[in-house]
């Protein structure tokens, strides 16, 4: 039945009408977005010229022009990663990486050419800027330019607007099923076991690692024999310094409302990150040679490994922060 000639004729017909449809869409374009973008670039022009960075304005204008340029909708993978969307935002990510946060990397020799790896990092900041920067760093440093997928906590990825953007940039809702599926598909996966506790911790607790979830990542990595690379991010904690956290708001929002020097006072603009200097350190991978996969069932063993990884990240953080007076 599937090989019936009638089917293929119909499919061809479909493809033809699809391309016709596409042309009609390209003709109409998305005019509202275009107008808004043009207005925004004009508004920024004066400010940037005052700051003595007219080339930044050109960059911004270029970026917005590319963003509003309607092209054929791209295919997405099973978790919604849209390569074309990512490519369109790449200039902004590059700008944040190179100029805004001036990211420095060490330990890149630990990023071996392996089919799959689980990376575990400290979470910082409200929006997943840290995940995007680690992904950017790995893509730059890896021999075959692998870009890891990052896991995002529920409370963020199911919020309006975040839900429609984060998956397109490679974010995946953090749950064991998703992590397993990604690893089995030979992806590099980046997890933040601290979760919400890490993202919304007050500024005074910066670089103090929170509890590592329930550690579901350890048995998973052991079962699939995936090495774990600890990653430490320094600088992410300063992009959204949380001065006060309104835990009362959890009742309405589902997460405590953070107050930073700019948020929520400046509205959505307050979500713009502050420019801090970042360092990303990749630690020595933890491998499972000679360990019986059955031990993933042993909660005490799992907890020990989990704590070992937590400690190795904490050690890197402590070492990096030593002598850094501004971050004491």
């Amino acid at each position: 039945m599937t090989q019936d000639g009638r089917y293929s004729a119909e499919l061809q017909e479909l493809r033809r009408s699809a391309s016709e449809l596409r042309e009609s869409i390209q003709r109409t374009g998305n005019s509202t977005l275009k107008r808004v973008a043009e207005g925004a670039t004009e508004a920024f022009r004066g400010t940037l010229e005052q700051l003595g960075a007219p080339e930044l304005w050109l960059e911004l204008q270029n970026l917005l022009r590319r963003l509003t340029n309607e092209t054929e909708p791209a295919a997405v993978d099973g978790f919604g990663l849209d390569q074309e969307f990512l490519a369109r935002w790449q200039p902004l990510l590059r700008f944040l990486y190179e100029r805004w946060w001036r990211v420095q990397i060490s330990g890149a020799q630990h990023l071996a050419d392996e089919p799959r790896v689980l990376m575990v990092a400290n979470r910082s900041g409200i929006l997943p800027y840290d995940a995007l920067m680690i992904a950017e760093a790995v893509e730059r440093e890896h021999v075959r330019n692998r870009r890891p997928r990052f896991l995002t906590a529920d409370w963020l990825v199911t919020r309006p607007f975040a839900q429609s953007w984060i998956p397109k940039l490679g974010g995946v809702r953090a749950c064991p099923e998703n992590a397993e599926r990604l690893l089995l598909a030979n992806e590099w996966v980046l997890a933040f076991p601290e979760g919400q506790k890490g993202a919304l911790k007050p500024y005074r607790d910066r670089y103090r690692l929170q509890r590592f979830g329930r550690g579901g990542f350890v048995p998973l990595a052991l079962r699939l024999n995936v090495p774990i690379i600890p990653v430490a991010v320094i600088g992410g904690e300063e992009v959204h310094p949380i001065l006060y956290r309104a835990d009362m708001a959890r009742r309405w929002l589902g997460f405590p409302l953070p107050f930073t020097p700019t948020f929520p006072w400046l509205g959505p603009l307050g979500l713009l990150p502050l420019p801090s200097q970042w360092r990303i350190v990749f630690g020595e991978p933890l491998r499972w040679t000679g360990i019986d996969p059955e031990r993933g069932e042993d909660p005490l063993f799992v907890n020990r490994i989990r704590d070992q990884i937590r400690l190795s990240i904490a050690e890197i953080l402590a070492e990096e922060l030593r002598g850094d007076r501004s971050r004491d």
Binding site: A18, L21, I25, P73, A74, V76, G78, G80
Partner: peptide, 10 residues
């Protein structure tokens, strides 16, 4: 799979 926005645009 395709995002709803892509389907509508298509």
């Amino acid at each position: 799979v395709l995002p709803l926005s892509t389907l509508l645009r298509l």
